[in-house]
Simulated assay, not measured.
Amino acid sequence: MFLIMGNEKVKVDTAFLSDDEQAVSGFDKNGKRLVILEGVNFENVWLEDDRGQRLDFPKKPDTNQEIEELKIQVQTLTESLSELSKKTSQENSDEIIRQDITETTNGMDI
Rank of each mutant, 00 (worst) to 15 (best):
M1Q: 11
L3V: 03
L3E: 12
I4N: 00
I4W: 02
I4Y: 05
V10F: 05
V12Q: 00
T14G: 01
L17D: 02
L17C: 06
D19M: 15
Q22P: 02
V24S: 00
S25R: 11
G26S: 04
F27D: 02
D28G: 06
D28S: 07
K29F: 02
N30C: 02
K32W: 14
L37Y: 03
L37G: 06
G39K: 04
V40Y: 03
N41V: 08
N41P: 03
N41I: 04
L47N: 07
E48G: 13
G52K: 15
Q53W: 09
L55A: 12
F57K: 15
F57N: 14
P58E: 01
P58R: 08
P61Q: 11
I67Q: 03
K71R: 09
K71G: 06
K71F: 05
I72N: 13
Q73L: 06
Q73W: 11
Q75N: 15
Q75W: 10
T78G: 07
S82M: 10
S82Q: 11
S82W: 10
S85E: 02
K86L: 01
Q90H: 13
N92S: 08
S93P: 09
I97M: 12
R98A: 09
R98D: 11
Q99C: 08
D100P: 01
T104R: 06
T104L: 04
T105L: 14
M108L: 14
